[in-house]
Design a binder for these strands. Structure first.
Lengths: 214, 214
DNA sequence: GTCTATAGCCGGATAGAC
DNA sequence: GTCTATCCGGCTATAGAC
């Protein structure tokens, strides 16, 4: 490791990395700067050397968390194959990605509830490109439909399934396999492909899902 | 109006009624008991005559808000007609109900994020019956499918559309008509009925949507 | 770059008068 | 039932030593 500042491991980045799961779990208000300091191995006063104030720290944590997700989403959408296969791959892999990352889901949920214009604007910029890539795939498969709404429906079924989990488990017909992301993915693929009047493509070969940058 | 205590207008109920929109808009932490007192026309100290503490007030507000919604949901599902018509009616009317009631959506969203076991348990009890009624309808239409998942998908597409609104509006392909609940309802009906391999029933006669109890 | 100490504020809850 | 006054605790942020 050389002397030059390493974006991966400098103190500031480390603080962001430990604070993301805390904000995800408890929300902005309940996480105190003392908590963050303790988790990063310092006192709250030291945080003010790195960040102007709590709001700034939070916004940088948000960006830190979402930037990588947008890049992973782009990577998922860059897979090879027919449009059918690529759409199926997106549903399968994105479902898995979110199953593996409760923090990401929860931060997103909190932003949709209480995010200010600036934060939400930042998110929209990050997801502009992946959204367009997905739109290009859907357009080939269903030129006559409202592509925007089809995409939102897919995302809704994935994300809301996780959001509603705590309540869903207590409702009639809940089964253990509903916790498995593959059950969810299969269900969504069936629904979407039947609307597109296409066959659901065969399951993916066990390609590695990108789970981190680089 | 007689002397007996009227459940509709006693002071306690009035406090709950004014606090629900506040909790919905800003969340538990950001709403102070001083705020609630002011909105109800009294000081915070007076609230402690009616409620043990802030948590208790919140929980009662939650129940107050959700009980009526569960009853309305039941009313929507009690409509006449073929199973196809009843499912279509549910999608149409529930979409409208949620369009008209941002408080309900937001309180639900907050509970799914941060609700404790007790609150979520209460919600699940309230929605048990409407869920079963919906399941009975779907079962007739699609005996071979995972009914639980089909219902969750419908609810996901309705609720997530509203949740994601602030972000969705900034994404490619967003159009003004996506704000109209009827656009959403039509889209969901098309998707669900194509999966069921049924025709979408004709639009409802302009029946009044129940919007309050009684 | 991190610490200790503390200023300054605000929120929940209670005491006691009316 | 509602008020005024107040206590207590926790939080953000800063000052200043090291």
């Amino acid at each position: 490791m050389d002397r030059k500042k390493s974006a991966q491991f400098d103190k500031k980045t480390e603080i962001l990395a430990v604070s993301v799961p805390m904000f995800a779990a408890y929300g902005y208000n309940k996480v105190t700067i003392r908590d963050i300091g303790a988790a990063a191995g310092m006192t709250s006063a030291a945080l003010y050397y790195h960040f102007q104030d709590k709001q700034t720290l939070y916004r940088e944590a948000l960006k830190f968390s979402f930037q990588s997700k947008a890049e992973i989403t782009h990577a998922i959408l860059s897979s090879q194959g027919t449009p059918e296969e690529r759409l199926a791959a997106f549903i399968e892999r994105y479902t898995q990605l979110l199953a593996d990352d409760p923090d990401f889901r929860r931060v997103m949920q909190r932003e949709l509830l209480d995010g200010d214009e600036e934060s939400v604007g930042m998110l929209s910029e990050l997801f502009q490109q992946p959204f367009d890539e997905l739109a290009a795939i859907v357009e080939v498969l269903a030129p006559a439909t409202d592509i925007h709404m089809v995409i939102m429906s897919i995302i809704a079924m994935i994300l809301y399934h996780y959001e509603v989990g705590p309540l869903r488990r207590l409702l009639p017909g809940a089964k253990p396999e509903h916790e498995d992301y593959r059950t969810l993915a299969t269900h969504i693929k069936r629904l979407i492909f039947s609307m597109l009047e296409k066959e659901v493509p065969a399951d993916l070969p066990p390609t590695t899902v990108p789970t981190a940058l680089g």
